[in-house]
Write a protein that binds this DNA or RNA. Sequence first.
DNA 1: AGTTGATCTAGAGCCCACTCCAGCTCCTAC
DNA 2: GTAGGAGCTGGAGTGGGCTCTAGATCAACT
Lengths: 136, 136
Amino acid sequence: METPPAPAASLTIGQVAERTGLSVHALRFYEREGILAAPVRRTSGGGRRYSESDVEWLNLCIVLRASGMPIPDIRRYTEFVRAGAGTEPDRLALLRAHEARVLGRLAELQRSLDIVRYKVAVYEDYLEQQPAGPGL
Amino acid sequence: METPPAPAASLTIGQVAERTGLSVHALRFYEREGILAAPVRRTSGGGRRYSESDVEWLNLCIVLRASGMPIPDIRRYTEFVRAGAGTEPDRLALLRAHEARVLGRLAELQRSLDIVRYKVAVYEDYLEQQPAGPGL
DNA sequence: AGTTGATCTAGAGCCCACTCCAGCTCCTAC
DNA sequence: GTAGGAGCTGGAGTGGGCTCTAGATCAACT
């Protein structure tokens, strides 16, 4: 198999891309944007080597992005984490604010869904038995 | 009050902007993009005059946009509506496909929310009693 | 007649989050 | 040693959805 005897977990950018689903472009982009918690180690030749905890961090970033957090906010969170102990209240505040935004977004999506479903129902009724026409 | 005796409902672009929350820029943009069901009437001087049904249509467009339907898809839907009777199955298919996408998006958002809430809980616990530290 | 304010058009500009390119280096295999 | 493939950097390009500008027109008010 491919599994080495568990060395100090060192992944190339390609391997990380494969695991996370991010492109290598995106990985370098994220690094430039300053949203990696720890500086990525490099080989003598300059190649990036990611640790498992880098991958975990990226997975968090992916969740935050997927839930609509803009990169500047992720950067602020990252900076708090890098700043270490004492910034926990700031991180919590940031996460809570994000939680609230996600809740709002969920509610909005749900409202939209209700309307879309209503229109779907109208067209279904119309296509079953043509009484009048579904309007617009 | 402001209610006139219900004339042939004619609104300026500014009034429509106010009612819909869209900018006048966006209204003209949507028109250029071909996502108005009916051609907007014009005054002799070239000014747009919207009807109430234009506003209703725009409200639907807003819902579709808010739920993530891209403008080209809205345009396709609009074209079916303009094409009139016989396109109902196409419209239904389009709406059902959108419904499915919205459901998927809702599920994804919910998963992200769970993770964000987990992290919030971790930080809350940490800040109540400092046993170890919240990790990242 | 003049001023203000809304509207018009065509087209440029902006923001975001990537994405891709050129030109180079590095490692591995043959 | 050389070909291939992954990786490097800095910077340009892309796509979506608006947003804004310039310069003109128009209606209403004073």
